[in-house]
Simulated scan of single mutants.
Amino acid sequence: MSKIIKIALITAAVSAAFMLVFMQNIQKTEKVVIVEKDIPAGTVISEDAVKVVDVPASAVKPNYARSLSNVVGKVVKEGRVRGDFIPVEILTSKDSQPLGPDHAVMTVSVTSVEAKTLQSGDTVSFIVFDQTGSKVLDGFKVISVVKEDSDKASLILNADLNSAAELVPYLKLNSFKVVRR
Score class of each variant (00 low, 15 high):
Q24S: 07
I7W: 12
A16V: 02
F22L: 07
D48E: 08
V32T: 05
D54H: 10
D54I: 07
V35E: 00
S15L: 10
E47G: 10
K37I: 05
S46K: 09
V14A: 07
D54Q: 13
D48H: 03
D38Y: 05
V33D: 00
Q27P: 12
V33Q: 00
I34D: 03
A16L: 07
I39F: 14
V53M: 02
Q24G: 09
S46Y: 09
A41H: 09
V14H: 01
A41S: 12
A41I: 05
V14Q: 08
V55L: 12
S58T: 05
A59R: 14
M19R: 02
I26G: 07
A59D: 12
A17Q: 01
Q24C: 11
I26N: 10
V50E: 01
V33Y: 00
T29Y: 15
A41C: 11
I39R: 09
M19Q: 10
I10D: 04
P56W: 13
S58D: 07
A59L: 14
A41R: 09
V33C: 06
A16D: 01
V14M: 06
P56H: 15
I45G: 15
I39D: 15
A57W: 12
K28T: 13
A57L: 15
A13E: 01
I45P: 14
K51H: 07
K51W: 11
D54W: 08
I7Y: 12
A41N: 05
V33S: 02
E47V: 13
K37S: 02
V35D: 08
K28C: 11
F18A: 05
I10P: 09
A17F: 10
V44M: 03
I34E: 03
E36R: 02
P40C: 09
I26Q: 14
P40R: 13
S15K: 06
V44A: 11
V52I: 12
F22D: 04
V52C: 01
V52L: 10
E36F: 09
E36K: 12
I39M: 06
P56K: 14
K28V: 14
V21M: 08
I10A: 11
P40W: 04
I10L: 09
A17P: 03
Q24H: 11
D48T: 02
N25P: 10
S15G: 12
Q24L: 14
D48Y: 06
I34L: 02
Q27K: 15
A16Q: 04
K6N: 08
V21G: 10
L9W: 00
V35F: 01
A59M: 14
D48R: 00
